[in-house]
């Protein structure tokens, strides 16, 4: 098992290397000369050349990349060109907010998605099944920014149950949490349903029913355990997508997380912050996927930890 984890970690390295190269290059393509921007409109050509040398922009691209990576590894994410604070400080302020939001969304998504999926599978072809699958389909097709605004309109503006925007109390988390979680809940519900249906058709379920086990015990004790294996993968994948979805949800609800900071920073052309946030999102996504693979290997004993020949 340890070897398996180690091998997966090593396997992650080329992708992460590629991710850093891509993020580094993306923001080298950006039109406009950073040295000229720092120098200001009255600068002479010599001034600009001096600043360029000072910023290290006259060095070959790969030297710039290596020094950027070196800084990253030492925990230096650069300086925000908007606030002149260290990027790590700016981003650090926003990380807890985004984690809070994604955590509550995934909880909502898992509870609602699992419940809907299991009930739909047990009561196959009933109105409950049809309703939950239609709702799930709509959940997948609804743009989250529109859903967020509609929830805000009904529950914050008209009914006044929740605040419209911002962060502070737990009430601030409910509407954004639902907005962000709906898509994931819908997909979890669909996968749970089809996985449960597949398991319910297996012989050992019929045996369990035949030997007189109650429906409840059959489903909870025998079916669920096996049906959940693919669901775990989907939950992990959705968790990764929630990070990206947070960009939109946070913008809708003016919620001060990393996603909103990303959009703001793009607007202000604050590229060190943009780079850092993209990197953090990609790293989180990679680690979540890794964790899921490990959990999967643990849950499903048929997956071998030995290296493939």
């Amino acid at each position: 098992m340890f070897q398996y984890i180690l091998r997966r970690l090593i396997g992650l390295a080329p992708t992460l290397f590629g991710v850093t190269v891509l993020i580094f290059l993306l923001l080298k393509v950006v039109p406009g000369d950073p040295a000229r921007m720092v120098a200001g409109p009255d600068a002479t050509l010599e001034d600009i050349a001096l600043i360029r040398a000072e910023l290290g922009l006259d060095r070959p691209l790969w030297v710039q990349y290596v020094s950027w990576i070196g800084d990253l590894l030492r925990g230096d994410l650069g300086t925000s060109t908007r606030t002149y604070n260290p990027v790590s400080y700016e981003v650090g302020l926003r990380i807890p907010a985004t984690l809070e939001l994604t955590a509550i969304s995934i909880v909502i998504a898992v509870i609602v998605g699992l419940a809907a999926g299991v009930i739909a599978a047990i009561r196959r072809n009933s109105w409950i099944d049809y309703t939950s699958m239609v709702v799930a389909l709509l959940g997948i097709c609804t743009p989250s920014f529109w859903l967020g605004l509609m929830l805000m309109l009904v529950f914050a503006v008209w009914l006044g149950w929740f605040p419209t925007s911002g962060r502070g109390s737990w009430e601030h988390l409910i509407l954004p949490g639902i907005t962000l979680g709906v898509g994931a809940a819908a997909i979890i519900a669909r996968v749970t349903r089809s996985s449960m249906l597949e398991v319910l058709n297996q012989d050992y379920i019929r045996t369990a029913s035949a030997k007189g086990l109650s429906e409840r015990a059959t489903i909870l004790g025998h079916a669920m355990k096996n049906a959940l294996i693919p669901v775990v993968t989907i939950i992990g994948l959705q968790f990764g997508y929630l990070l990206a979805g947070a960009v939109i949800t946070e913008s809708v609800f003016a919620y001060p997380g990393m996603g909103r900071l990303l959009v703001e920073s793009i607007g202000f052309r604050d590229f060190p912050v943009v780079q850092a946030i993209l990197l953090i999102f990609a790293l989180q996504f990679a680690l979540i996927n890794l964790a899921i693979d490990i959990l999967y290997a643990y849950l499903d004993p048929r997956i071998s930890y030995e290296s493939r020949r």
Binding site: T15, V30, G240, A244, V247, V263, F285
Partner: peptide
Amino acid sequence: AFPGLLLAIAIVAAIG
């Protein structure tokens, strides 16, 4: 490696 929308956001951030 960039989840969902993020790749598109990153590209638009770079090219405008």
